[in-house]
Design a protein around this nucleic acid. Structure first.
Length: 319
DNA sequence: TGCATTTGACCGTC
DNA sequence: GACGGTCAAATGCA
């Protein structure tokens, strides 16, 4: 543990040095980049050591545990951070993840106030004043789950990392007081499977590298036997439809993302590859892979590599 | 040809 | 009336 602390101290020192030298380094991008790399490396070292300690503790003291079943204490925060990092396909650096953590903590205040607003209840019950176009009532009391997701550094940085579902963009809106527009997505299979899941994506004003993603509604597209993914991502459905407050009060959603071995398969990309469309065969494949690597002794009893490369399911989309 | 994205307009809520 | 969420025609792409 001492090594971890030393690594963190070293990283902190580097950050302080960088802050002091920032005015001088502003014209030296290469030096600046090098400095950032050093900081990143220091934090990464600390994280890796923490991970090792965490693994050791977990295997020696307690049975494997689903992450969301743990209490949001410090070790859990670390695991969350690492998971977020893994989930972003290493597209963000570890120090960005720390930024995210800070941003997320700041976001709690927003969510607290939102909770108040959300609890006002649904007043619209599908009464449409207009006859020109049938419209759905606003789902005011629908459970929401707000999360912060790092923007990829490579590829399409306009979109947050894929989240295991396929989404179709149906709108974009400039939001008052926000620098960046909010994008609206619904499940690709909304019509086919009457899937009501939706999400809104918006960059944070103060940190364009982080997306605030708000999920609403349940994914029902996995319930059908003919559904595109044969395994219902139950853990995610639960997260979306419940515990809005609980989830919001924690660091990030990944705290609550149960790693379901049965859902893990290699990731595939859309044949059409639309920028906002993500198609994972399973859910959070990167997380699953990490789970396989780090928690291979889980209660499932499956060989971790077997579940990673399970040949059992062709999860290609029904599109 | 079919599906996804864009974008202006529409509509409900406050 | 302002704002946010949604619709749907137009457009793009493979």
């Amino acid at each position: 543990m001492e090594e971890v602390i030393n690594s963190i101290r070293r990283a902190s020192e580097l950050v302080q040095n960088l802050q002091q030298d920032l005015p001088n380094l502003a014209n030296q991008p290469e030096t600046l980049s090098l400095s950032i790399d050093q900081i990143t490396q220091a934090f990464t070292d600390a994280k890796e050591k923490l991970l090792l300690i965490s693994r050791h503790t977990q295997t020696s003291e307690s049975p494997p545990m689903l992450l969301h079943e743990t209490t949001p204490q410090q070790p859990q925060m670390d695991a969350t951070l690492i998971q977020e990092w893994l989930r972003s396909s290493h597209a963000v650096t570890m120090d960005q993840m720390f930024q995210m953590q800070l941003a997320s903590m700041a976001g709690r205040e927003v969510e607290d106030s939102e909770r108040t607003i959300g609890s006002e209840g649904d007043q619209g019950q599908g009464i449409h004043a207009s006859s020109s176009r049938p419209r759905r009532s606003r789902e005011g009391n629908q459970e929401k789950k707000k999360i912060l997701v790092p923007a990829p550094q490579f590829g399409n940085t306009e979109m947050p990392p894929e989240d295991g579902f396929t989404w179709r963009k149906y709108g974009q809106k400039e939001i008052l007081g926000s620098k960046y527009p909010r994008s609206y997505y619904r499940c690709t299979h909304q019509k086919l499977y009457e899937c009501q899941a939706k999400k809104m994506v918006q960059r944070l004003d103060h940190n364009a590298n982080i997306f605030e993603v708000t999920y609403r509604g349940k994914h029902t597209c996995h319930m059908s036997s003919t559904a595109p993914s044969s395994v219902p991502p139950e853990h995610i459905l639960v997260d979306i439809t419940q515990n809005t407050n609980t989830i919001s009060s924690q660091l990030s959603p990944s705290v609550n993302l149960t790693l379901h071995p049965a859902t893990a398969t290699a990731a595939t990309t859309s044949a059409r590859g639309g920028p906002s469309t993500s198609r994972y065969a399973g859910d959070y494949p990167v997380l699953d892979m990490a789970d396989a690597m780090f928690n291979s002794g889980s209660s499932s009893g499956n060989n971790s590599m077997e579940f990673l490369f399970s040949p059992t399911e062709d999860k290609s989309d029904a599109n």
